[in-house]
Amino acid sequence: MAPPSEATMELGRAVWNYRCYFCHGYSGDAKTLATSYLNPKPRNFQETRAEEMPHERVMSAVRHGVPNTAMKGFTGILNDQEMEAVSQFLRQEFLVSRAKNTRYHTKEAGWPDHEQRYAKAFPFARGDIAIDTPWDKLSAEQQEGMRMFRTSCITCHDHGKVNDPGKAWESRPVSFPRDAYCSSCHQDVPRSEPKGVSHPQRPATHTFAERDGSVPVRSPTRPEAQVASNYVIHDKPPVLVNASAQELQGEKLFHRNCAFCHAGDGTSKGWIGSFLEPHPRDLTDPQQMKGMTKERLVRSINEGLPNTSMPAWKSVLSPAEIDALAAYIHKAFHPVQGMAAAPAARR
């Protein structure tokens, strides 16, 4: 097969960098956060021989997915030209050329001066130094790099490398990156907006990050308002008033299992929700929740929704837990028809 044209490669690269990187990595090596919790793990194309993945096999996986894995089919999401381009790009870039693909941490992607500003964190992101290395075994510069990694890099790079994996670092997944802009809410707003311009939907609480290249690094000494991440606003759950015991149970279950895609505030405008297509349901949107009944909501949670990323939870959560989730959604985000009023417990 002849090498793909430059136009095909660039189209394939654009599709890969938007649709595929979260699981397979920008360079196809599957060194991603998703790899740490998926089983079986995404394929590492940098360690796959080209003859193992002929074009026809790649195209089949892109079109139809791979059974019993997290690899979903993209028919109906990508058109034929895009599927052809990303398949050819994958083979040429990773299987044939063993290339490293496009750099992600660029000024255009919200990372001005990344190579200089975050250099001390690189050893932890690359896995050169384990992040559970005893503090007193690190030099002063490495300690600074450790702080930077934990506050600015860990969301996407996760463990990096650890000597003892131990338990999960967080009991609840964080669904936002520490980047410098919020594309889920205002993709149509130019990034040249002046510093401090209000978020169009939440003017009282949410502003754009600094645009002058001086986005502050997250650190324990900086207040939350200065953090260079606007997705954090969507990770904050609503405050419940007079919640029942069932609703409080549903709150815990939602933030352990559902917030990663639907966001903590139920809007699905977190980092992960913005990459899934179709996007997860905005549980706060009257139009998307129009006609929602308890029966329909419970069935959706139980059985999942075909042709979406909504999985079936019936083998993970008990019927009582799914009822609690429905009760929480009714209480916190949008009224659900058929939900009976529950006696208040506390809060």
Score class of each variant (00 low, 15 high):
40 P>Y: 08
320 A>I: 02
306 P>V: 07
335 P>M: 09
326 A>C: 14
50 A>I: 15
57 R>Q: 03
243 A>D: 02
110 G>M: 06
246 Q>H: 00
255 H>F: 14
290 K>E: 07
77 I>L: 12
336 V>A: 12
260 F>E: 03
185 C>H: 08
142 Q>P: 00
131 I>T: 11
243 A>Q: 01
4 P>W: 06
1 M>F: 10
189 V>L: 13
234 H>W: 06
222 R>V: 14
34 A>W: 07
343 P>E: 09
39 N>K: 07
306 P>W: 10
73 G>Q: 08
325 L>C: 08
79 N>P: 03
117 R>E: 08
319 P>M: 07
286 P>D: 00
151 T>A: 13
295 E>Y: 03
109 A>W: 02
95 L>W: 04
333 F>Q: 04
256 R>E: 15
245 A>P: 00
196 G>L: 08
190 P>L: 04
299 R>T: 15
2 A>Q: 13
318 S>G: 02
53 M>F: 05
40 P>I: 08
346 R>K: 13
203 P>E: 00
12 G>E: 03
41 K>H: 05
291 G>S: 11
58 V>Q: 00
291 G>Q: 13
263 A>G: 05
122 F>C: 03
10 E>H: 04
90 L>K: 04
222 R>Y: 03
307 N>L: 12
206 H>N: 03
179 D>G: 12
188 D>Q: 13
106 T>M: 09
342 A>W: 07
321 E>T: 05
232 V>L: 14
112 P>F: 11
202 R>Y: 11
140 A>C: 05
85 A>P: 02
341 A>D: 14
138 L>E: 01
321 E>N: 12
254 F>V: 01
199 H>L: 01
279 H>Y: 01
153 C>L: 09
334 H>T: 10
323 D>P: 02
340 A>E: 15
76 G>F: 06
